[in-house]
Write a protein that binds this DNA or RNA. Structure first.
Lengths: 228, 228
DNA sequence: CTAGTGGCTGTGGTTGGACCACACAAAGTA
DNA sequence: TACTTTGTGTGGTCCAACCACAGCCACTAG
């Protein structure tokens, strides 16, 4: 077994057994190297891996925020992995869109009637912000992504909403590359706004079936228009 | 920007632009270090990350299989990330089960009628192997996992089947830990076998709705029995 | 002539040591 | 009291070696 794998295993075990919890600080790299009987380099490789996996956050310097701190950021590793495998062309964009439709329509159906006014407030605020007619496409899409993610979060499934967010992040670049090609951005945006409001209304009214089919059509329409 | 991030970015860009394709070999670590103007250490950290992300495979020695080779193994990073975040207790098992039900019932519905005899042959062979009454629980569950994954693959969505496989892998340890607690393994196994055959039959007959509800009940039943 | 053997070479894997930039904390100073 | 300086511990980076490994190749014993 490689040295960094050993370190990885040991640290993961400590997290698993609850000896390390979120917010805790790992010992310094030099201390870990000594404890595990490996070089600091190997410890660093393990730390790197944990960092890109979203399990820890590192910062130099001293003080309470310095060092390697246990966090739970499941979104970033999913996003990176998706982006990377999208790049190898072994993961068709069509599959991503299909998965989005699947997850998101399930989420809004699940959320319908279940989500109270307080939970819906965040989504409404995003829609309000998107109503600004002077918004640049880039800003619009960032808000759009946030809206869809917050909608998915209403279903209360951490995994689903995390995957949703990662899917959005991973294809964001592709979407933005295609926006300038659109024949009429203003018209497209107006349609998107209208559809967003309709979806949110269905969720608020507790009409799960309507919300699901609306959101599915909304997503599929956009990708058809964008020819992705 | 950190040095290893720069290396990561450059290599990812080369993959993205098609200059590096699956099966290609990366230049040696020493050569990359010189090309990017960083130390070999930083190159190695980037390589490590790409490795755990399932984008490359490394091997020492010489010959055609040695060095860092571009691969596409999207399953392993998802599995590791899930396992890791499962360990931090910020990802409830219930969410994973719910997601499994969601994805898998969609997959079998999609596959119903679409999958031909050739595609179904693999799944049937697995069920035959699971009919062996002397099978140990561990072996049974490995075959079980394979069956569910091959079932999901029938829908033809790479992302969905990959996520499915990762979900199974990530919770495999939890499942195996609970099997010895079951009051009567043989009875449980018999039920699982029966349900598997029923699901496969529905898929073969093109009855998507039946297949979806059968597989959903199958999964939920098992986790209820296992009290996970 | 063939089969085996040993060294050569290039690969990733690992180590120890050195230095840097950073950020806070504490001691010193106006 | 308020500011400045110094100290200390953190991660970030680099370097120069050495190891283990695996293929390749020339040499040698049969």
């Amino acid at each position: 077994m490689k040295a960094y794998e050993l370190v990885l295993q040991r640290i993961e075990a400590e997290i698993s057994e609850g000896r390390l919890r979120i917010g805790d600080r790992l010992p310094g790299e030099r201390a870990l190297a000594e404890r595990f009987g490996v070089s600091r380099t190997s410890v660093r490789e393990a730390i790197r891996v944990l960092e890109v996996m979203g399990a820890i956050r590192t910062a130099a310097g001293s003080g309470p925020d310095a060092g390697a701190i246990i966090v739970a950021e499941p979104r970033s590793p999913l996003t990176s992995a998706l982006r990377l495998h999208l790049a190898t062309s072994h993961l068709p964009i069509a599959d991503i869109v299909q998965t989005r439709v699947l997850l998101e329509s399930w989420a809004v159906r699940e959320a319908s009637g279940k989500a109270g006014a307080a939970e819906l407030a965040g989504a409404e605020r995003l829609l309000d912000a998107m109503d600004d007619p002077g918004l640049a496409p880039e800003q619009f899409h960032l808000l759009d992504a946030e809206f869809h993610v917050s909608l998915s979060a209403l279903a209360g499934n951490v995994l689903v909403s995390t995957v949703m967010a990662s899917l959005r992040d991973a294809i964001h670049g592709y979407v933005m590359a295609v926006v300038p090609e659109l024949p009429d951005w203003e018209t497209t945006a107006a349609g998107l706004r209208r559809e967003h409001h309709a979806v949110l209304r269905a969720v608020r009214d507790g009409d799960g079936d309507a919300a699901a089919s609306l959101v599915a059509a909304h997503i599929e329409d956009f990708y058809r228009t964008a020819r992705l």
